[in-house]
Amino acid sequence: MDPDRALVEEARRGNQEAFADLVGRYQVRVFNLARALTGNEADAAELAQDVFVKVYRGLGTFRGESAFRTWLYRVATNVIRSHIARPSVFRWLVRRERNDADPLETLAAPGDIEARVTQRDAIDRALGQLPTDLRMAVTLRDVEGLEYKEIAEVLDIPIGTVMSRIARGREKLRPLLAASLGWT
């Protein structure tokens, strides 16, 4: 049973409060998915907003064959994939500027919260260097915690391919993380 079904039905009838509840329920997940896949906070906010707007406009076409959450992730990965495929000149400049910073310098920053933020930045930076297909699979599993079957539905690929992409993605990610996190 889809735990979001009642809210989805209400939102589909035009109930704004129901849709607001859905946004509240999933905004952290969608924003973090975009943040991990783009490595950029500003882009992530913009993309997450686009995702929810697309979801709202597409509610009429959602037939409930999959869980709302799965459908939401499918919309999100499509929106983010399009963004990754067509970076604007401005985003490219921003990304270059961000990549110029030495990750090891930022890791040395004191304070627990700051350390977590820099760790997240370092991880997202490493993820950003993976090929898109591998990045999607690893992020959906290791950042979002989706099950293999759900990842297969979201990405519309066989479950064997999911396992392979996660395995290979993690393998490629290891040296990138080592460089980004300052592993010896």
Partner: peptide, 28 residues
């Protein structure tokens, strides 16, 4: 795989920017 899984567990969620939900709702 074992090493990366451990490292990814260190990643904490980023906070959603303030005013995010109202902006979404204004769009729809």
């Amino acid at each position: 795989n074992l090493a990366v899984k451990r490292a990814m567990a260190l990643r904490t969620d980023a906070m959603v920017p303030s005013g995010f939900a109202p902006r979404v709702l204004a769009c729809v």
